[in-house]
Nucleic acid binder design. Structure first.
Lengths: 143, 143
DNA sequence: ATAGAAGTTAAAGTCAACTTGAGGTCAAGC
DNA sequence: GCTTGACCTCAAGTTGACTTTAACTTCTAT
């Protein structure tokens, strides 16, 4: 199947200007053009966009994603590099999750703090409470 | 206890230029200065920095954090607003975690994919494998 | 054949969150 | 008194990831 830039934008929710920007950066090396110079996206480019989305949401910068896509073009000889890259990315995302979970726990503490203050109508009711007045699962996340 | 900007930078790992920038943005409304005009950080500012770190790692922009800190200055009347803000932030972080977990699973699939390709020496060995040749827990994350 | 929607380019603009640079001041030890 | 390192301000620069603009072309439907 073939798609115009507008169709791809509608399918993926990515702005056409962003797709042009990715193209300018060389992320779609195999993309074709109509005789009049109009971009023709195919399944290949849609697959690339999925990989871009995955790597982007793992926090990888565009230029590193571009480098990875270049490795894909090189074929089998670059399998090792690509494998290592994904393992590093996985480790990275796992620590991002751990950090976000810590953040979530601090926010849970703050929610409890403000629920309590809100009920009392004043922060004085919570500010200097001893640790054992704090729900056990939130105690370590007091800030 | 009182700290110089350099000490706070060492304690927190935040660059002195960043601390000055935060100060310029009005995040330390109670911070004092020495007679010579030098910033004197106290426990109050260290506590603020912890809140800033928490909200920043939840993805909140600096100007919204500033707005929250302004609410804190208003005292008890703003407890409701602050409470709602933390509840929204918690919801937000929970969906960020869910999205990152999805990303992690896609990366796990890619790790398996490249482990397999690497062992075989060629991507041909994995590219078009049927779904049931993929580890069950990764099947849904094929990209 | 023509209108208008959708596409094209290159270059400039935007935004957040800092960081850097220039030029000057403060504070502690000798 | 003087050096030296840490501090100060203000303005400008940086980075990444887009987005916008202007001027133009192509495609599609009537």
């Amino acid at each position: 199947m073939h798609y115009s830039i507008g169709e791809v934008s509608d399918i993926t929710g990515i702005a056409a200007s962003t797709l042009r920007y990715y193209d300018r950066e060389g992320m779609f090396p195999a993309m074709e053009r109509s005789s009049g110079g109009i971009r023709v996206f195919s399944e290949t480019e849609l697959a690339t966009l999925k990989v871009i989305a995955c790597l982007k949401s793992s926090g990888m910068p565009i230029k590193d994603i571009k480098e990875f896509l270049d490795w894909c073009q090189e074929g089998d000889p670059s399998i090792g590099k690509r494998r290592e890259m994904f393992h590093r990315r996985l480790t990275e995302v796992e620590s991002q999750i751990a950090e976000l979970e810590r953040t979530r726990n601090m926010l849970r503490y703050k929610c409890w703090y403000y629920d309590t203050a809100s009920e009392a109508g004043t922060e004085d009711a919570v500010r200097d409470l001893p640790d054992d007045a704090i729900p056990e699962d939130l105690r370590d996340y007091r800030i």
